[in-house]
Nucleic acid binder design. Sequence first.
DNA 1: GTAAACTAGTTGCATATGCAACAATATCGC
DNA 2: GCGATATTGTTGCATATGCAACTAGTTTAC
Lengths: 165, 165
Amino acid sequence: MAERTGEEKARLRVFREGSLDQGREEAWRALITAHAAAVERIERGLLEAGLPPLGWYDVLLELSAAPGCRLRMHELARAVVLSRSGLSRLVDRLEKAGLLRREPDPEDGRGSFAVLTNEGSRMRERMWPVYAKGIAEHFGAHVSDEEAAVLCRALGRVRDAARGS
Amino acid sequence: MAERTGEEKARLRVFREGSLDQGREEAWRALITAHAAAVERIERGLLEAGLPPLGWYDVLLELSAAPGCRLRMHELARAVVLSRSGLSRLVDRLEKAGLLRREPDPEDGRGSFAVLTNEGSRMRERMWPVYAKGIAEHFGAHVSDEEAAVLCRALGRVRDAARGS
DNA sequence: GTAAACTAGTTGCATATGCAACAATATCGC
DNA sequence: GCGATATTGTTGCATATGCAACTAGTTTAC
């Protein structure tokens, strides 16, 4: 492929400028494709089991881990990495399904809490085995203990930096 | 948090059943949140530079790396991890923007190629510096050389397994 | 104390995406 | 050969999501 040598040179130049070496570019591409492919499989598992999609689980998990099973909308949006409007609609759907309810914040008239209902808690418990099976099958099975530890640390730093905390 | 001990026990039970230990679950959660947060930042960078979104870059990159700058629709869908219908619409948009064109496959009357245009090639070159800067800033800067190598290997396996190849 | 600036959440609009159904073509079994 | 089956790509429909604009409430500056 002689026509790519010029292109390759251009790439290498940009790598230096942007401090992005080839190893990191490949790692990034592996990250986005692995994520897309694994999520697609796991979503399919949930769908086939007649369960709600992944995004619902994330919300239910964050709420059940929060003190009083409640979070302010903006905290929840941050936790699940969604825009405020996206979260507002997602909470609409969960509320309509009875899995959570909105409650005004008595200390801040602008804000409201999303509060997990018992039904939401039960749904999370129903979803978890299917989700866990998907993670184990499409992710865990291909990653060693040591690799999992490295992923956790490195991606934890990426997450914290990008989320701004 | 006394109310969570029972829940924790239930979790541990499921971990054993599904062969999913806590390290791998945490690694998975780090993966999805880091991905979401970093992609969000990078997309914002592209948007602010008046450039098309990430998905467009992926298509342009796959085409430019392919022999003859052309791929069958289903190959492209697989490469960028999108459903056939999703890809069909994405190619619609790129074609309308003049960045690629469809061509019938003379060897298979059902199929068609997506072929990169010169304009598409130029657009990819325009997008790359901004994209590379985003990757370097929101991903590369937080990952060591060794971690990048581990990510590449481990996530490469996850990708190949989930994509079925 | 009050006006200005900020923050929280929702909504209109545009865009993105998957599933199911479909039409066109190819391949397999025989 | 030829009918049954499978594959390719597109479309109708439903759902999901972000930005910008908006309302309502809070905080800051003076």
